[in-house]
Deep mutational scan, measured.
Amino acid sequence: KRPMNAFMVWAKDERRKILQAFPDMHNSNISKILGSRWKAMTNLEKQPYYEEQARLSKQHLEKYPDYK
């Protein structure tokens, strides 16, 4: 399994927040909201998630050095 990218790292927690506020919302609508919010964020706001992506990628490479 591939490591999560920056968007997926961010969306994991954001999806939970949306589901808590709107428990009956369909997944497709949640995904649209998440995509819009991510696009509206600045690079500075996204930076911590890119850093986490890099950490996860490094960890994955160490754990699975032959992964293609």
Rank of each mutant, 00 (worst) to 15 (best):
K1T: 10
K1S: 08
K1E: 15
K1R: 09
R2M: 07
P3W: 09
P3K: 15
P3Q: 13
P3V: 04
M4Y: 09
M4R: 11
M4G: 10
M4I: 07
N5D: 14
N5E: 13
N5G: 07
N5A: 05
N5Y: 14
N5I: 01
A6Y: 00
A6F: 01
F7K: 04
F7S: 00
F7Y: 10
F7N: 05
F7H: 01
F7E: 07
M8Y: 03
M8E: 15
M8K: 12
M8Q: 15
W10E: 01
W10R: 01
W10S: 00
W10A: 01
W10I: 00
W10L: 01
A11D: 00
A11T: 01
A11G: 02
A11F: 05
A11C: 06
K12L: 09
K12E: 14
K12Q: 13
K12Y: 01
K12H: 09
D13P: 10
D13K: 08
D13A: 01
E14F: 15
E14G: 03
E14K: 12
E14C: 07
E14N: 00
E14D: 00
R15S: 08
R15I: 09
R15W: 12
R15Q: 06
R15M: 11
R16K: 12
R16P: 12
K17Y: 02
K17C: 03
K17H: 06
I18C: 01
I18Q: 01
L19T: 13
L19R: 12
L19V: 11
L19P: 00
L19G: 05
L19Y: 04
Q20T: 09
Q20A: 11
Q20S: 11
Q20F: 03
Q20K: 08
A21I: 04
A21E: 15
A21F: 09
A21T: 12
A21M: 14
F22A: 10
F22Q: 15
F22P: 02
F22M: 08
P23Y: 00
P23L: 01
P23Q: 02
P23T: 01
P23F: 00
P23D: 01
D24E: 11
D24S: 03
D24K: 08
D24A: 05
D24L: 04
D24H: 05
D24P: 00
M25S: 06
M25H: 02
M25F: 04
H26Q: 14
H26I: 07
H26P: 14
H26S: 15
H26R: 12
H26G: 13
N27H: 06
N27Y: 09
N27L: 13
N27D: 14
S28G: 09
S28A: 13
S28V: 08
S28M: 09
S28F: 09
S28C: 11
N29V: 14
N29G: 10
N29H: 11
N29R: 12
N29M: 14
N29K: 15
I30H: 00
I30W: 01
I30C: 04
I30S: 01
S31M: 10
S31W: 14
S31Q: 12
K32D: 11
K32G: 05
K32V: 06
K32H: 09
K32I: 08
I33P: 00
I33Q: 04
I33M: 11
G35I: 13
G35W: 10
G35M: 15
G35N: 15
S36G: 10
S36Y: 08
S36T: 13
S36Q: 13
S36I: 07
S36N: 15
R37I: 03
R37E: 05
R37F: 05
R37P: 01
R37S: 04
R37Q: 08
R37Y: 01
W38C: 00
W38M: 00
W38H: 00
W38D: 02
W38E: 02
K39T: 09
K39Q: 10
K39W: 03
K39E: 14
K39H: 07
K39I: 02
M41C: 01
M41R: 01
M41A: 02
M41T: 01
M41Q: 00
T42A: 07
T42N: 08
N43P: 13
L44H: 08
L44A: 14
L44W: 08
L44M: 12
L44C: 06
E45W: 07
E45C: 06
E45H: 02
E45G: 04
E45Y: 02
K46S: 01
K46A: 00
K46L: 02
K46Y: 01
Q47H: 07
Q47L: 10
Q47T: 07
Q47M: 09
Q47W: 06
P48S: 05
P48G: 04
P48K: 05
Y49C: 04
Y49R: 03
Y49D: 02
Y49W: 07
Y49H: 04
Y49I: 05
Y50M: 06
Y50P: 00
Y50F: 10
E51A: 08
E51W: 01
E51M: 02
E51P: 00
E52I: 02
E52N: 04
E52S: 03
E52W: 02
E52K: 08
Q53H: 15
Q53G: 10
Q53V: 15
Q53C: 15
Q53L: 14
Q53P: 04
Q53S: 15
A54F: 06
A54N: 07
A54G: 05
A54T: 05
A54Y: 04
R55S: 09
R55Y: 04
R55K: 07
R55C: 05
L56E: 10
L56F: 08
L56M: 13
L56W: 04
L56I: 06
S57H: 10
S57G: 09
S57L: 11
S57P: 06
S57D: 12
S57A: 13
K58Y: 07
K58D: 13
K58S: 09
K58P: 06
K58L: 10
Q59P: 11
Q59W: 03
Q59H: 11
Q59E: 13
Q59C: 08
Q59R: 09
Q59L: 09
Q59K: 09
H60D: 13
H60G: 14
H60F: 06
H60S: 10
H60Q: 09
L61N: 12
L61K: 12
L61I: 10
L61R: 13
Y64F: 10
Y64S: 14
Y64W: 10
Y64M: 15
Y64P: 14
Y64Q: 12
Y64V: 14
Y64H: 15
P65H: 15
P65Y: 03
P65R: 08
P65V: 10
D66W: 04
D66N: 09
D66I: 06
D66C: 08
D66T: 08
Y67V: 12
Y67N: 15
K68D: 15
K68G: 13
K68C: 03
K68T: 10
K68E: 11
